[in-house]
């Protein structure tokens, strides 16, 4: 098993932290290997931010991602910049609050109101990254929700654990629901041939 992820958005959206949590979940709570790397501009807020994670049950040497299996895209400019790198038949989770123009992709696109939900459900746009991560876990199943939850507890600032746990739960349910919809009825912009990476029956809805 080897799965390559790219998470992208603007600085301050927390995509790097989301990637660190994903890698932490794989290493510390799933017993897998993972590498996480990042690139970012000089801005702490705004500017482009990109985070890459590779999860594998074998050794990982080259740590960068050229064509990701899975992407989490948190804004339009990241969509425009990276969407063509997606591996053929890959999966994209997009924040439809900020990605308005979903150009055609040779893969499965899952749009979610990620930032919108962060604002409406929690009044805190800052948890969008964790909702997005929840969506990613729900859609791909590559990492269990429990592993992500534990990694969140380890990596988020003290005092925000409960908020982030709720954000994860929301995102995860959004992801699971949409995946079941797609696979159940076979009609969605996820595409007819979409197969979740891990067996859904094991997922806790």
């Amino acid at each position: 098993m080897r799965m390559e992820f790219r998470l992208a958005g603007s600085g301050g959206q927390g995509v790097i932290l989301a990637g660190v949590i994903l890698a932490e979940a794989a290493v510390s709570y799933e017993g897998l290997n993972a590498v996480q790397s990042q690139s970012y501009g000089p801005e702490s807020r705004g500017g482009a931010s990109k985070c890459e994670v590779i999860i594998s049950d074998g050794e990982i040497y080259f740590p960068k991602v050229i064509s990701p299996d899975v992407m989490l895209i948190m804004n339009q400019s990241s969509w425009n910049k990276y969407i063509h790198d997606l591996k053929k038949g890959g999966i994209v989770v997009a924040d439809s609050t900020l990605v308005k123009e979903l150009t055609p992709v040779d893969g499965h696109v899952f749009p979610f109101e990620i930032t919108g939900s962060a604002i409406h459900e929690f009044g805190r746009p800052v948890v969008a990254n964790i909702i997005g991560l929840g969506c990613l876990a729900g859609v791909t199943g590559v990492i269990s929700k429990e592993a992500v939850r534990k990694a969140i507890m380890k990596r988020v600032p003290k005092g925000t654990e409960e908020l982030n746990e709720r954000a994860l739960e929301l995102g995860y349910q959004m992801g699971i629901r949409k995946t079941l919809e797609f696979t159940g009825r076979g009609e969605s912009n996820g595409g007819e041939d979409f197969e979740p990476i891990r067996d859904r029956s094991k997922a806790s809805v």
Partner: peptide, 9 residues
């Protein structure tokens, strides 16, 4: 920078 900023197991 590759190794300095890399996170891994």
């Amino acid at each position: 920078e590759i190794v300095g900023h890399l996170r891994e197991k």
